[in-house]
Amino acid sequence: MLSQPFRIETVHRESYDTFTVELQPTNGHDSFLFAPGQYNMLYVFGVGEVPISISGDPDRPENLMHTTRAVGTVTKAMAELQKGDVIGIRGPYGTSWPVDRAEGYDVVFVAGGIGLAPLRPALYHVLAHRDRYGKVVLLYGTRSPDDILYRSELEQWRSRFDLEVHVTVDYADATWRGNVGVVTSLIPKAPFDPLHSMAMICGPEVMMRFTAIELLKRGIEHEHIYLTMERNMKCAIGFCGHCQFGQHFVCRDGPVFSYAHIGHMLSQWEV
């Protein structure tokens, strides 16, 4: 499985440590088809390769987008890249958010931190086919106001009458006028019908675990909760073994899983 060279068209700084790149293949104008929730392996020449979720619009496959936080060797090297630089792409890999299965239901998106990036393609899809879904709710929590991604887009979404957006931060500064607290605190009051809802969660593992617990308290069924796991990935095709999570290869059987399948493992330590 060889990487294909893609050229960086734009780099957008989302926050002090997070950036979004927009990419196009160097060998023409092929579209990059993917399903919401899938990821690519991104290669920085000579430095290494990392799995990053696709954060763009699945209906606009001519623009491949990745939102990345600079935390390791490869992502820090990637943060130094500029328009015109080339990175390697192979993918898309993995399972996707159940946007088709969710038709007819209320949809609850719960994102923590950079977890909004892998959810954004699903949100785009739901908004593009808005009439197929019931109420749509986005609950988003970050550490601080500085960590909020896609600010202008969030403002647009917030102004829509057919989408409920609630944002909360763990630590507020003097300028913050919104909610303070962890994202799970938004769940009890969120406007959705638990008996006819599909939830999609992405964030740190502990956040997803307690989000699911809150959603279950509201009465959403196990089978209607989906989340996306993160593990070390080297190959993306189930060979290297690094991403094992119990019997699952997160790279191939995930990253999107049904809570009914993996929920019990979230409370097991070091699996």
């Binding site: 000579g46 430095v47 290494g48 080297k234 190959c235 290297c240 690094h242």
Partner: peptide, 10 residues
Amino acid sequence: CFCATIEDVT
């Protein structure tokens, strides 16, 4: 046992 790692170098 089949686990392997990938190394990128220049």
